[in-house]
Amino acid sequence: MAVAETVQAPRGRRPLSSARLKRYLAGYLFISPGILGFVIFTAYPMLFSAVVSFTKYNLLSPPSFIGAANYDRMINDKLFYTALYNTAYYTFIGVPLQIALALLLALALNQKLRGINIFRTLFYLPTVTPAVASVILFMYMYNPDYGFFNYVINLFNGPRIDWLGDPSWVKPAFIIMSFWGVGGQMVIFLAGLQSVPLTLQEAASIDGAGVIRRFWHVTVPMITPVIFFNLVLGIIGSFQVFTVAFIATGGGPINSTLFYVLWLYQHAFEFLRMGYASTLGWVLLAIVMFFTAINFLVGRSWVYYEGATN
């Protein structure tokens, strides 16, 4: 309510600059809960972990400063590169496919059909299933003899694949598993599609545009903000993939599912190297921030905001 009072103040001598000042003030007031939250709950833990990344810290006795030794260790750590490769593989192959699939599903659900609510709920089912349960289910679907996937492959006389036992198949297996969780992205797309004004669709339809042209020229431009959102957060989230490997493989076979955050977790709570874990964490932040920044820069050229100012 304070915002309302400030902005309502009588106009000053220089209306333009005072309006601007009020706008700035209103802007800062609106975002203040977030900034306050950052200062109270996040700034100290972030700072602390940054400092700890220059220490040896086993959680049981106070950290001791060791300079950049953890960063040295990382550069010489073969498994750091393995974990980074595994994670990048999972992210850069998985995320685009997830987004495409989520969009297709959302399009299928964005229709006026009787009972569509039931289908929406059904499509969302895999996403709300507790992760533990769905990982366990998927492990069984990957059984070489009785699993669903090999059953289908067998119908086409394909090879018998040892999905979780063969280091070269286990990452693709995990990516396929990740499709199971696209319900979240699907719902976001659905919400985005719901915001595409029907009148626009109608206008294009009357102009004789086909389904595919309408999709590319009307629908897609209108939902670029949500595509962008799913892309940015897909990459951020995917770089932190953890649960599936934690439950299904523990990083094996031969470290082929040793994902970055799993490796970090093991250092923190199994090897008691919180200092090195913090180093890994901050390097991950730098890597993900790099890709996010690229996304934001490139995004300027393809993301269309109806209400953007410039």
């Binding site: 950052f38 996040t42 100290y44 833990p45 972030m46 602390f48 972990s49 700890v52 959680l59 940015v232 957060l233 951020i236 770089f239 932190q240 955050v261 970090l264 977790y265 923190a268 709570f269 919180m274 874990a277 913090s278 890994l280 964490g281 901050w282 991950l284 932040l285 993900v288 921030m289 996010t292």
Partner: peptide, 14 residues
């Protein structure tokens, strides 16, 4: 947005 990029594991203790 950057608060989403730091793995929560390393900020658990602080």
């Amino acid at each position: 947005i950057s608060t989403l990029m730091l793995p929560g594991i390393i900020t658990l203790v602080p």
